[in-house]
């Protein structure tokens, strides 16, 4: 486990502490090794210990969660010099989120991609949303291209298919995780506890939609661009060596707001809402449009639909 600060001039004793903690962590098992000195930078000794013994999110008591939150905010302050607010807003009753995208409307602008990057404090070399340029009359994903870089879009003879985490109802990524660091919340959002994830990347292999992204290094995150309204299971700054993915902007949607991608879409191709509300727009789309989902034959039951105008 590399620490980015290690090369800097550290006062004597600091490296000894690091070595000590490293030994301790290795002895204690890989389970939370990264937490003690992940890429947070400048953890104090007590924070490092507390991080090391931090429980799984679902097993923490309220007091433990609020301590963990305080630590997260303190670490962000130390690392980025920014005051973030990390909350743990729970799922609303009677809400299961779903998403529908009108592929006739999507024009491949990638506005959603960058709204997501800004909203969710993504490392600036990571993008949760991939807009795939597809040949008209074909649904063959093998020939889709998400690196397209034209002067003008949309191109004739192409259509654009945005992909992100589908929040599967039967998620293979959750089944693959050996430490249960990823699970489905009551509102249908598949989340990751970044402090519990060991970075084994099994889930990335299990996901048929390439929706998960691994932080190979510390996220490259300009401090002045940090979104300070964060959620524990959502967009709080992540350490290096963990897996992350789209979480339907849990920090927004649980407070009744739209996800950042929906808000940024200039064509109105994105429709987000509560699947349990029979009057919601998404239910109208599901009932009245010719809808399809990607790789349906795998039985992952994505809560993410696509439709066309005609």
């Amino acid at each position: 486990m590399k620490n980015p600060d290690e090369k800097g001039a550290a006062p004597p004793g600091v490296n000894a502490r690091r070595r000590f903690l490293q030994g301790l962590a290795l002895a204690g098992g890989a389970g939370a090794a990264h937490a003690a000195f992940g890429a947070w930078g400048g953890s104090t000794l007590s924070d490092a210990f507390a991080d090391f013994f931090q429980q799984h999110y679902q097993r923490m008591t309220e007091a433990e969660i609020s301590e963990a939150i305080t630590r997260i905010e303190r670490k962000a302050k130390r690392r980025y010099g920014v005051d973030i607010q990390c909350d743990t807003t729970p799922a609303q009753q009677g809400v299961v989120f779903g998403y529908a995208i009108n592929v006739s409307k999507c024009r491949g602008y990638r506005d959603c991609v960058h709204a997501c990057v800004r909203e969710n404090n993504l490392s600036r070399d990571t993008q949760y949303i991939r807009v795939i340029e597809m040949d008209r009359d074909s649904t063959d994903l093998r020939h889709g291209d998400h690196y397209y870089d034209h002067e003008q879009v949309p191109l004739d003879g192409k259509y654009y298919l945005p992909m992100q985490c589908m929040h599967c109802d039967n998620p293979p990524c959750v089944k693959a995780c050996p430490v249960e660091a990823t699970w489905t919340e009551p509102d249908g959002i598949v989340v990751v506890d970044y402090d519990w994830c060991i970075g084994c990347r099994y889930c990335m292999t299990a996901c048929p939609y390439q929706a998960r992204h691994f932080n190979w290094g510390s996220p490259a995150l300009p401090p002045e661009e940090i979104n300070t309204a964060t959620h524990y299971l959502g967009n709080r700054p992540r350490p290096a060596g963990v897996v992350e993915k789209c979480h339907f902007c849990v920090q927004r949607t649980r407070k009744g707001r739209q996800p950042a991608c929906q808000e940024a879409c200039p064509t109105g191709a994105r429709i987000f809402g509560n699947l349990l509300d029979p009057d919601s727009e998404i239910r109208y789309v599901l009932a009245n449009k010719a809808i399809f989902r990607l790789k349906e034959d795998l039985g992952t039951e994505p809560k993410f639909w696509y439709f066309r105008d005609k």
Binding site: G268, I271, E281
Partner: peptide, 11 residues
């Protein structure tokens, strides 16, 4: 009914 156009504010 919500399948065209853009909803602003929250869901």
């Amino acid at each position: 009914y919500g399948a065209h156009g853009k909803r602003v504010s929250g869901w």
